[in-house]
């Protein structure tokens, strides 16, 4: 499975990359904000997107909007991993079409649980 990790902090990208490797996902690519990620998604055959929210130039929420608006990307599973924890933000992300939402700081177990759940649902539906 090919995964794109989007976060403006390289430390967080490395943490997520390492956790994913522990979970057996070795095919990961990184981008440092939404505007860098979108062209990669359009050209890259990614199976899964993990994105932060608060990033310069293009936020994770805007990236999610762009993904849902794109004919080829609209069904891409998206997990948001962010420090944005206000109720109305989570509601907004849900409305835009996020598949799951993790609040930073998080644990390796939470990441595993959310990823498993996303693909359980997708497999059940598909």
């Amino acid at each position: 499975m090919k995964i794109l990790i989007v976060d403006d902090f390289s430390t967080m990208r490395r943490i997520i990359k390492n956790l994913l490797r522990d979970l057996g996902y070795n095919n990961t690519t990184e981008a440092d904000d939404g505007s860098a990620a979108l062209p990669m998604l359009k050209n890259g055959n990614f199976d899964f997107l993990i994105t932060d929210w608060n990033m310069p130039t293009m936020t994770g929420l805007d990236l999610l909007r762009a993904v849902r608006a794109d004919e080829h990307l609209k069904t891409l599973p998206v997990l948001m991993v962010t420090a944005e924890a206000k109720r109305e933000q989570i509601v907004e992300a849900a409305q835009v079409g996020v598949n799951s939402y993790i609040i930073k700081p998080f644990t390796a177990d939470t990441l595993k649980e959310k990823i498993d759940k996303i693909f359980e649902r997708i497999n059940a539906a598909g």
Binding site: W53, N54, A83, A85, K86, R87, E88, Q89, E92
Partner: peptide, 20 residues
């Protein structure tokens, strides 16, 4: 809020909003 405001910090103006 849509552009993101970073982690909620206790004892700041963030306290006025419902944090999850």
């Amino acid at each position: 809020l849509s552009s993101g405001s970073g982690p909620s910090v206790p004892g700041t103006a963030d306290a006025s909003q419902e944090v999850c």
